[in-house]
């Protein structure tokens, strides 16, 4: 067993090289096998970076912990993008869409720590993928509900009693309200700009009452049940997503 130390600069260089190697496989035409290999490599690299981050947290080195968190988010963004291509090739379009949104959200959070040309290029690339690969959604679901306060993801206390603020980064972790329980659903609105763009319309009915898959426009195996009137369209959609991303 060796006990060699690695400098932050060396870690950063390895990280830069790894991100570049991921970008090489982040195209539709790359083979699915290679993309799966790279995605699995991402998992290992994310775990490695998180282990460095936890060491920085133990030393209370906030700046370094935050930079490792940035790397963690960027690697997760690359992994989500690779997984999105894989799901597209496996005809799992709804999962692919969610992975694209995951990648975009990882980039948004990574930008809280550092903003530079490379991350903005990735942000633009993801936006291009969104507009060229997937259909446009004019409307998304936006639910309103009452809920419990929940706990703080940083200190695990009741969120009402701690001093942490949502969406801020503390020592390499993103503050979120967790363990919230929905008390009562209030409404679901169709909006152009939802908080969660995973809440999409997945099926619609056409003029003949046939149910179409919104991704493929093929007739769906599962029909939307109900009695639609003439000139009315029925939709099937995702009202709420409980996906949690790797921000700890």
């Amino acid at each position: 067993m060796t006990n060699e130390k690695i400098s932050f600069e060396d870690i950063k260089e390895n990280y830069d090289n790894f991100i570049d190697s991921c970008a090489k496989f982040s195209f539709f035409t790359r083979s699915i096998e290679k993309q799966k290999e790279k995605s699995s490599e991402c998992t290992q690299q994310i775990n490695l970076i998180k282990s460095y981050k936890y060491q920085a947290i133990e030393r209370n080195a906030e700046d370094q912990a935050n930079h490792f968190f940035h790397m963690q988010c960027m690697m997760n963004a690359m992994k989500s993008t690779l997984d999105m291509w894989i799901k597209i090739k496996e005809d799992e379009f709804e999962k692919a869409w969610c992975l694209l949104i995951d990648a975009q959200e990882y980039v948004e959070v990574a930008l809280k720590v550092a903003d530079y040309e490379g991350i903005r290029n990735l942000e633009s690339k993801l936006a291009s993928i969104e507009h060229s690969i997937f259909p446009d959604w004019a409307l998304y679901n936006s639910p309103g509900h009452t809920e419990t306060i929940g706990k703080c993801s940083i200190c695990h206390k009741n969120f009402a009693v701690c001093d942490h603020i949502e969406n801020q980064i503390y020592l390499g972790k993103l503050c979120q309200r967790v363990d919230r329980e929905i008390i009562e659903a209030n409404h679901v609105a169709l909006v152009k700009n939802p908080k969660d763009r995973r809440c999409i319309i997945t099926k619609i009915t056409d003029d003949d009452g046939k149910t179409l898959d919104y991704f493929t426009w093929n007739e769906s195996d599962k029909q939307i049940s109900g009695n639609s009137k003439p000139d009315e369209m029925m939709i099937s959609s995702i009202i709420m997503s409980f996906r949690s991303l790797d921000f700890s």
């Binding site: 936006s142 639910p143 309103g144 509900h145 009452t146 809920e147 419990t148 306060i149 009402a160 919230r180 008390i183 209030n186 609105a189 909006v191 700009n193 939802p194 908080k195 969660d196 809440c199 709420m240």
Partner: peptide, 13 residues
């Protein structure tokens, strides 16, 4: 009053 219940509107607004 001390907040106990929150109203969440999942809009980008």
């Amino acid at each position: 009053t001390d907040p106990e219940v929150l109203y969440e509107q999942r809009s980008v607004e």
